[in-house]
């Protein structure tokens, strides 16, 4: 029921802000109004399913689909694949991630050179990290990789070139003592950013929106709350305890 309240009032609040006269109601009246809004179960189920799919909860999604008798047009096994790809990137296993992407959607990297470059650069960074952690610090593999896969791309695209040059600068410094710009590259945060891009690209190719709908609803609620507060009104904030 908590979902229903959130979803329904979102629609209402945006309708209310349009009216000039200020209406007030008691908490009971409010509750009543909330109760009055009928949300079809199918819609609610769809909202939940949407969240589960986009956030990548495969087993939950397939169980929910069974229980709610929903058919999903997104192959559910692709959810699992996306999660594996994300995990591989997070763990720095970029080659594995690329191969999984190619298995899942062979045209993705062919048609999305920026994404491919981002992944290859990440792979280069991982190679640099490896070479830095070995005692002799052999950088042959790093140079080979950069020459084979990145140099020609950088030639064609100035943005790629700047990124590549910056990355190659990592070779020259000790990983413990980097300027903030370079430190960013070694930060696992970069992996996370790339994994988000990959996830979005895969979802976009599947024709699915890239963000769970409920996140949008929560934002709308937040906006409505703010709007009411600015009018010096009081409103229940979207909080777990209020939704209980």
């Amino acid at each position: 029921m908590s979902f229903a309240a959130a979803a329904a009032t979102d629609a209402q609040s945006s309708a209310l802000t349009g009216s000039a006269s200020r209406k007030e109601c008691t908490e009971e009246q409010w509750e009543q109004k909330v109760e009055d809004v009928v949300v079809a179960k199918a819609r609610l189920d769809a909202l939940v399913m949407n969240y589960l799919i986009i956030e990548g909860y495969q087993s939950a999604a397939s169980k929910f689909a069974q229980e709610a008798n929903l058919s999903s047009s997104v192959a559910l096994d692709s959810i699992d694949e996306r999660i594996k790809i994300r995990a591989a990137i997070h763990a720095g296993r970029i080659q594995e991630a690329i191969e999984r992407i190619n298995d899942l959607n062979p045209e993705l990297l062919d048609t999305n050179p920026e994404l491919h470059f981002a992944l290859l650069r990440l792979q280069l960074i991982e190679l640099i990290r490896q070479s830095a952690s070995t005692p002799d610090g052999d950088i042959t593999a790093v140079l080979n990789f950069a020459t084979t896969h990145l140099a020609s791309r950088a030639q064609r695209n100035p943005e790629f070139l700047a990124d590549l040059e910056q990355t190659m600068a990592l070779i020259c410094f000790s990983p413990d003592n980097l300027v903030p710009q370079l430190a960013e590259l070694m930060d696992p945060e970069l992996r996370r950013q790339v994994s988000i891009k990959v996830n979005e690209a895969i979802l976009a190719a599947q024709g699915v929106m890239q963000e769970a709908k409920i996140r949008g609803l929560v934002r709308v609620w937040g906006w409505a709350e703010n709007a009411v507060r600015q009018e010096k009104g009081e409103v229940l904030s979207l909080d777990l305890k209020n939704l209980a």
């Binding site: 199918a42 819609r43 769809a46 909202l47 399913m49 949407n50 799919i53 929903l70 058919s71 999903s72 047009s73 997104v74 599947q206 024709g207 699915v208 929106m209 709908k213």
Partner: peptide, 12 residues
């Protein structure tokens, strides 16, 4: 679109 991913492929 309220059918989540379900309807999308069909609409496409």
């Amino acid at each position: 679109s309220n059918a989540g991913a379900t309807g999308l492929a069909e609409r496409k």
